[in-house]
Amino acid sequence: MTAFIALALQVETRAVTAAAEPRAEIGAAIERIGAQVGASKAWLGSDLRLVVLPEYVLTGFPMRESFAEWRAKAALDPEGPEYRALADLAARHGVFLCVNAYERDEHFPELYFQASVILSPGGEAVLRYRRLHSMFTPTPYDVWERYLDIYGIDGVLPVARTEIGNLAVVASEEILMPELARALALRGAEIFCHPTSEASSPMLTPKAIARRARAVENLAYVVSANSGGLTGIAIPVDSTNGGSELIDHQGRVLAQAGAGESLVAAAELDLATLRRARRRPGMGNLPSRVKTGLWAEEYARHDGERPGETPGRDRAWFLARQAETIERLYG
Rank of each mutant, 00 (worst) to 15 (best):
T2L: 06
I5V: 09
L7Q: 11
A8Y: 01
Q10V: 00
V11C: 06
A15L: 06
A15M: 02
V16H: 00
V16W: 04
A18R: 06
A19S: 09
A20W: 04
E25C: 03
G27E: 15
E31N: 00
A35T: 09
A39M: 04
A39P: 03
S40N: 07
S40F: 06
K41L: 06
L44K: 01
G45A: 02
D47F: 02
R49I: 06
V51M: 13
V51H: 09
V52L: 08
P54Q: 09
E55W: 05
Y56F: 10
L58S: 11
P62E: 13
E69S: 05
R71I: 12
A72I: 00
A72F: 00
E82M: 14
R84E: 15
V95D: 13
L97E: 08
N100D: 11
A101Y: 05
E106M: 01
H107G: 12
H107K: 06
F108P: 05
F108I: 02
Q114M: 13
V117G: 01
I118E: 07
I118Y: 07
L119N: 08
P121T: 10
Y129G: 03
R131N: 14
S134A: 13
F136S: 14
T137I: 14
P138S: 00
V143K: 13
D154W: 00
G155F: 03
V156A: 05
L157N: 08
L167E: 08
L167M: 01
V170E: 12
V170W: 14
V170M: 10
V170C: 11
E173I: 13
P178A: 02
E179A: 11
E179N: 09
A183I: 12
E190M: 09
I191W: 12
E198A: 04
S200V: 08
S201L: 11
T205S: 14
T205H: 11
K207S: 15
K207C: 15
I209V: 14
R211W: 10
R214N: 14
E217C: 10
Y221D: 01
Y221S: 04
S224M: 08
N226T: 11
G228P: 02
I233V: 14
A234R: 12
A234S: 13
V237G: 01
S239E: 02
N241V: 05
G242Q: 08
S244D: 05
E245Y: 13
L246M: 10
L246S: 07
L246C: 09
H249D: 06
R252V: 07
V253Y: 07
S262R: 01
A267S: 09
T273F: 02
R276V: 04
A277I: 07
R280F: 03
R280H: 06
M283F: 09
N285E: 05
V290M: 13
E297I: 07
A300I: 09
G304F: 05
G308Y: 09
T310D: 03
D314H: 13
R315A: 15
R315F: 14
E327T: 04
G331A: 12
